[in-house]
Each structure stands twice: as C-alpha cells, then as structure tokens.
C-alpha cells in the first residue's frame, strides 16, 4: 500500500491578476518505505504540492479538487486538530534553507525537546533522545551542542539538525523540500548518504524534492517529473532516466552531458519559459518549448502507459502504439 496517494489534486492562488493555477490534476504516489523524487524547474509547483500535503498553505491558496490520501485517510478532509496531531509525528518536513529553519533565539536542545511535547517522557529522557538523534546524523559532541544556538552551527550542521528533528519521531512519511540546494556539493553527498541510511533504518516513505538530477538518481527509487503545475512523467528512476518518455524529461537529461552523473548542481536550463499559470494556454502545457510538437498537441494529452509502471503525458506515446 502507498503511504501517500495523491489523486487529481488542483490548487490555485488568488492573485490580483486572477487565479494562478499552481497545481492541476496532480496524481502521484509514495509507496511504503520508498524514496520518491520530484524534479521540475522553479515555479512548477513543488512547494505548493508539499504545503497542500501537510496543509500549511499560504493564506491565498485554495484547494480546487482532489484527495491527499495518507495511509488511507484523506488529509484534505481532516480537521485542523487532526492535522496538527499528524505533523511532526507521522509526517515530518525538512525545508530548503537551513539558515531559516530554526528559531534563532532558542537553543537547539530546547527546540528538539519542544517538538517531543506529545511524548510521555521526562525532560532528561527527551534530552537524551535529542542527543542520540544528533549523534545519528553525525554531529560530534552532541551533549554540549544541545546547549548551543542555531547561529553557532554551519549550514550543513543545521540541515543535519533539521533531519535529526524530522526523523526523531520515526515518521511514516518524510518530506524534504530541496534539503541540499543551499549546501555545497561535498556536504550534499554526505547528507544524502546519511539520509539514505536513516531511511533504511526507520523504513519511512520519503518524498524528496530536488533540482539535482544526480541526487535524485542516487537516492530515489521512483521519480515524478513536474512541469508548470502538472505531472508529466512518473516511473522508476531507471526507466525515467534511461528511457525518458516525455520530451521535457528528455530535454532535461540531454542538457546534462554526463547524463545522470551530473557535475552541474542546478537543473539544466532549457530554452523558453514556463507558461503563465493565470492565463493557461490550451492543449499540451509543454507545447511552447517542445521540439516534437505536432498537430495533435493542440489537445491536452493524458497520462499514458509508456512501460511497466512508467507513465507520461504526451501524445507521442499513444501515437507510437497506434502507428
């Protein structure tokens, strides 16, 4: 069964120009114990998707349709109190910017103990747990460091602390929004390795968002490619990266000479821009930038099976079959 199963999710932001349709009919899954990566350019709705899952959305956001099933329960139908009970226990988050993640005026120990407020443990026991967790993510001398403030840690250390906090409650689902984008490459490798080990141990499902195709290839079991608020391709990392079915995915990979073992850590740039999400064009959302655009593309393609468990939203797939 899937820990997370998103079906037909649409989210819009009300803006002075009209409704910005940030997510349209998004469906995806995180199978139990698997790591699923999401790739896509900036602005394609990755953060919006996450905020809709844990229901911490911007005040001007509105869910139009869809379901977010977590262990079978539709999170969009839960009360706020039920959601709060899930956050930090069953579903945990690691955010992008480690310099902004922690409260600057409280010690790391205090923050790590505060998030255990639901546990029936003594202060000493909570502290010990925090200490063990810091040691697990590779922070030396954790006992002393619990008394320090976030500004006394480097960015890499702070992201380790964020991971420690997120995994402390052994959640069923960990969501990480570009957790290594703000770090340098060596740190990124170390942190990804540690994350993989810990995930193995805890057995949680992970939704991992990254700009870095190399990291996705290294870390993830499955990958979801998003473009301008839609899912355009899903499948195992192997299938998607070795036999991309959507021209957008192909363009991303072709821009990478070393293919998956990319040196560049930013997502490769492909010519053109994401379409205006307030005034959406009709037909295929990628048509403007697509090299393979043809007559059929004036109609919106649906997700089609490109292989076993490998789907993409492009007319070429169905045409290939029928041809």
């Amino acid at each position: 069964m899937a820990v997370l199963d998103i079906r037909g999710l649409s989210v819009g932001y009300s803006t002075p120009r009209g409704e910005l349709r940030a997510l349209r009919d998004v469906s995806m899954m995180v199978p139990e114990g698997k790591i699923v990566g999401i790739v896509g350019e900036s602005g394609c709705g990755k953060s919006t998707l996450i905020s809709a899952i844990i229901r911490l959305m911007a005040p001007n956001a509105r869910v139009g349709a869809g379901e977010v099933r977590f262990q079978g329960r539709d999170l969009l139908a839960e009360t706020e109190a039920q959601m709060r009970a899930l956050r930090g226990t069953q579903i945990s988050m690691v955010f992008q910017d480690p310099m902004q993640t922690h409260n600057p005026v409280l010690t790391v120990g205090r923050q790590m103990m505060d998030i255990q407020y639901r546990e029936r443990l003594s202060r000493a026991e909570k502290r010990q747990r925090a200490e063990r967790m810091l040691a697990l993510v590779g922070i030396p001398d954790p006992e002393a460091r619990l008394n320090q403030y976030p500004f006394e840690f480097s960015g890499g250390m702070r992201q380790r602390i964020a991971i420690a906090m997120a995994l402390m409650a052994k959640p069923a689902l960990l969501i990480a929004d570009e957790p290594t984008t703000a770090l340098d490459a060596t740190l990124e490798v170390q942190i990804i390795k540690r994350l993989r080990e810990l995930q193995d141990e805890i057995g949680c499902g992970v939704l991992f968002i990254s700009h870095h195709l190399g990291v996705i290839a290294e870390l993830c079991d499955e990958v979801v490619v998003m473009y301008a608020g839609e899912v355009v391709e899903t499948g195992s990392v192997r299938d998607v990266f070795h036999a991309p079915a959507h021209p957008y995915t192909r363009a991303l990979l072709e821009c990478d000479p070393g293919h998956i073992k990319v040196k560049t850590r930013a997502l490769p740039t492909i010519p053109g821009n994401i379409p205006d999400l307030v005034n959406l064009p009709g037909g295929c959302i990628f048509a403007d930038r697509c090299e393979r655009r043809h007559a059929a593309c004036a109609a919106r393609p649906t997700m089609a099976l490109a292989g076993d468990g490998h789907r993409a939203a492009c007319h070429l797939i169905t045409e290939r079959e029928t041809a």
């Binding site: 899930l86 955010f95 005026v105 505060d114």
Partner: peptide, 26 residues
C-alpha cells in the same frame, strides 16, 4: 512569516506556544 515558524508548525507545535514562546520573543 519566517521559516522557523513554518518549521514549528510543521512539527505540530501548539499555536499558543508558537506565538508566545517562539515568535513574541523575537
């Protein structure tokens, strides 16, 4: 609106504690 408040919420801390324990002090 800062990131650490979002973190506190993502860990399900009670809103009272977020406002009076985490935000007010700053």
């Amino acid at each position: 609106g800062e990131g650490h408040i979002r973190t506190a919420r993502a860990f399900g801390l009670p809103e009272r504690q977020i406002v009076f324990g985490y935000a007010l002090r700053l």
